[in-house]
Amino acid sequence: KEGNQRVIKRSEIDNQIMEILLESDVSLDSADLITEKLKERMGKLKRRVDFYSVEDELKNVIKEIISENQNRFDILNPGKKPYIILFLGINGTGKTTTIAKLAYYLKNNGKKVVISASDTFRAGAIEQISILGKNIGVEVIKHDFKSDPASVAFDAIEHARARSLDYVLIDSAGRMQTNKNLLDEMKKIKRVSKPDLTLLVLDAMIGQDVIEQANTFAREINFDGIILTKLDTDAKGGAVISVSTEIKKPILFVGTGQNMDDIMPFDPDWYINKIFSS
């Protein structure tokens, strides 16, 4: 973006906007839709326009789309005890780390939390969440490697009830949305734990596959909202826009690093700034 006044041809707007969106990993369909909306908004324009006014309008369009799906849900006052949150996602997106961060966040806000180590499958998963729990001073309920993840969750919920804790956070093994057995296992975890909130954890580096993943999980398991991790990287996290446009679920938190305080409630303005920073 050179200079203060960047005048472009009207006919170039489409291409330029598409490029910005696609390079941010916004899905192709969402990018089409946003470009259409933007053109509608800009109405009849002169043959040459100032690119910055187009960009400003684009920011408005994106903000609207994102905000439509954001609800005012206050995680610190969920109105039920224990409040049970289940985490879901494909392999390696950041579920376990996010759970520890969220537990830490809740704890720092005076809440009592227990974590269910329901990834009993991946090597080192129980150790990982146990170490994290110890570091943040939150108890982790665990069974043996390869044991039934649903019964770990059941025990964690019992534990929370008996001690009148505020939250139960249930970890789960990473699962591809193409793996029927693992989807069935997730259904069982959900049936047994009856979560108040199910969150899909997505990696900000994800590309066009986000829609396929989110749709399949929505259909097979259903979820209420999204956490996008790894936004401390160069990734723009266009998934936020894609899921807002096509899946219509809110983004609750974002992960911004590997440390325990690298989590924050999702803020559309912060996010839009990130996309447009070069």
Partner: peptide, 16 residues
């Protein structure tokens, strides 16, 4: 040396 549980993960995998 950074990710919690990375040692255990690789240890268990090596055993497997």
């Amino acid at each position: 040396v950074h990710r919690p549980g990375a040692y255990e993960q690789l240890y268990q995998i090596a055993k497997e």
